Every structure is written in C-alpha cells, then in structure tokens.
Computed example of a mutant assay.
Amino acid sequence: MRRIFALLVFALGGPAAAGDSVAFLGITLLDSSLQTAELGQNPAELTRLQLIEDLVAERFIAEGYTLLDLAPVQADLDRVVNPAKCYGCDARMAKKLGADFVLVGEVQKVSNLILSMNLQMRDPETGQTVKGRVVDIRSNTNESWLRGMRYILKTAFFKGEEK
C-alpha cells in the first residue's frame, strides 16, 4: 500500500501542494562564458534574471503558494554566492523561516548560444529535491529565458497551462 501511495504522489507531481509556504531564495547566474570574460557582465542578463525570478514568484503565488519574507535570513543569504549549491544552507534558512519548502535556481551561461537553467524545490527537513527540472536553451534573449523557465514550471511543477 505504501508503494502505491508513493507512486501516486510521484505521478501527481510530488508532495508539494498549493497553500504550502515556500522560501524562494532566488536564481543565480553562473557565467563562465568567454563573452563575459572579454567584455564584462551584460546588464541585459541581469534584467533577464529578474524577469525569470518574477515569473517564478508570480506563478507560485497564482497557484496558491505563500512566498515567505526573506528578511529574517537576509544577512545569511547575502553571505552566500549560490543558494542552490551551498551545502544545505538553503534548507537551514528555510527551516529558520518555518517554510514547507525551499526553492532555488540557476542559469548557467556557457556562451551566448548555450545556456542551462534549473529550478529545484527541496524539503528543508531532509534537503532532498521534491520537484525540479533542468533545461538547456539556445540563445540569450528575454524570450528564450522566459520560454525555458515557463517550460520548467509547466512540466515539473504545475503540469498544465499557466494561470
């Protein structure tokens, strides 16, 4: 019976449900591209990062999740370069906030043609990922970044059309 329940939970998209609280710690840009090394940070990419963070926050709110205020852990968060890979600091911050889940993401830019993005929802008690997806995108535009994140949200988190 337990196995059937576990399979059912997995098939329905995991244990997270609307009404749960989420500590969304943001999305980190990891840039190892030659373009940035030669020309410096492209301000348009920081704008794109904000676009997809806003998209994620708006979609979670539209689906009925409560995004928690990060002020109580802001000093901790400011000391971390990448909350998605900080040896469990994301889970510890989420626990401090009393969150049901922690949400972190990354966009890795290899070049203007090759980018990878991911979004992971974890259980703060165990640090285990309960939902998540990684996608590669080809082109460095507002539309490609938004399309990539919409795909992640649609296929890994909400299994359907946007609200």
Score class of each variant (00 low, 15 high):
Gly64Met: 03
Gly64Cys: 05
Met117Val: 11
Asp69Ala: 07
Ser116Arg: 14
Val135Cys: 10
Leu77Lys: 11
Val134Ala: 12
Lys85Leu: 14
Glu125Cys: 03
Gln74Pro: 00
Glu63Gln: 10
Lys96Ile: 08
Arg92Ser: 13
Asp31Leu: 05
Ala91Tyr: 00
Gly132Thr: 00
Ile114Lys: 14
Leu7Pro: 01
Asp90Pro: 01
Val110Ser: 15
Val134Ile: 14
Leu67Lys: 04
Phe101Leu: 12
Ile27Ala: 09
Gln128Thr: 14
Val135Gly: 08
Leu67Val: 06
Asn82Met: 07
Val9Gln: 01
Leu51Gly: 03
Ile27Asp: 01
Gln41Ile: 15
Glu38Met: 12
Glu53Thr: 08
Leu103Ile: 13
Thr28Ala: 06
Pro124Ala: 08
Gln120Ser: 11
Leu39Lys: 10
Leu25Gln: 00
Glu106Val: 12
Asp78Ala: 12
Asp69Phe: 07
Leu34Phe: 09
Asn42Thr: 14
Lys131Phe: 05
Glu63Cys: 02
Glu38His: 06
Val80Ile: 15
Asp69Asn: 09
Ile27His: 06
Glu45His: 13
Ile137Val: 13
Asn112Lys: 12
Lys85Tyr: 11
Ala17Lys: 12
Gly13His: 06
Ile52Asn: 03
Lys95Thr: 10
Asp69Gly: 01
Pro72Leu: 10
Asn42His: 12
Phe101Pro: 00
Ile27Ser: 04
Thr47Gln: 09
Leu30Asn: 13
Thr126Cys: 02
Ala84Tyr: 00
Ile137Tyr: 04
Ala71Val: 14
Gln41Val: 15
Gly13Gln: 05
Leu30Arg: 15
Ala57Tyr: 02
Ser21Glu: 02
Val73Gly: 02
Pro15Cys: 13
Val81His: 06
Leu8Phe: 14
Val102Ala: 08
Phe24Asn: 04
Leu39Cys: 04
Leu70Asn: 03
Ala84Pro: 03
Glu58Ser: 10
Lys109His: 12
Gly88Phe: 02
Leu67Met: 09
Ser32Met: 13
Ser111Trp: 08
Ala57Lys: 12
Val107Lys: 02
Gln35Thr: 14
Tyr65Glu: 04
Leu25Arg: 03
Ala99Pro: 06
Leu51His: 13
Thr129His: 03
Asp123Trp: 03
Glu106Ile: 06
Glu45Asn: 14
Gln120Gly: 00
Arg122Ala: 07
Asp20Lys: 05
Asn42Gln: 09
Val102Gln: 05
Cys86Ser: 15
Lys96Leu: 13
Met93Ile: 03
Ala71Gly: 07
Leu70Trp: 06
Gly14Gln: 07
Lys85Ala: 15
Val9Met: 07
Lys109Ile: 03
Ala16Leu: 09
Asp78Arg: 04
Cys89Glu: 09
Val107His: 07
Gln108Phe: 14
Leu8Val: 15
Val80Asn: 04
Ile61His: 09
Ala37Cys: 02
Ala37Asp: 05
Ala17Asn: 07
Ala23Pro: 09
Thr129Glu: 05
Asp69Glu: 11
Leu46Val: 15
Arg133Tyr: 04
Ala11Ser: 14
Ala16Asn: 09
Asn82Ser: 10
Ala91Trp: 00
Gly105Val: 11
Ile27Cys: 08
Val134Trp: 03
Val73Ala: 02
Thr126Leu: 02
Asn140Phe: 06
Asp76Cys: 08
Leu46Trp: 10
Val107Ser: 09
Asp100Leu: 09
Asp123Ser: 08
Gly14Val: 08
Glu58Tyr: 01
Gln74Asp: 01
Tyr65Gln: 04
Val130Leu: 10
